[in-house]
């Protein structure tokens, strides 16, 4: 068997690492966005006035 510097296996492993990395970055961005949206809802004028009553 000829040993290649770049085996098919390395390509698959690379695609898996890149894919997983992007998924994790996307998940972090999503949780951040969710946090901003949820906290924002708490401080809407209507919610604030209801809370003060």
């Amino acid at each position: 068997m000829v040993i290649k510097a770049e085996h098919e296996m390395h390509k698959r492993r690379f695609s898996r690492n890149i894919g997983l990395g992007l998924v994790l970055v996307g998940f972090v961005a999503l949780v951040y966005g969710l946090t901003v949206a949820k906290v924002g809802e708490l401080y809407q004028p209507e919610a604030a006035s209801e809370a003060s009553q």
């Binding site: 098919e8 296996m9 698959r12 492993r13 695609s15 898996r16 890149i18 894919g19 997983l20």
Partner: peptide
């Protein structure tokens, strides 16, 4: 251990997990 895997490469790509 790579030699004993069932497939030619023995490694799944991201697309395989997505499938």
């Amino acid at each position: 251990s790579i030699q004993t895997t069932k497939t030619e490469t023995g490694e799944a790509g991201f697309g395989d997990y997505f499938a």
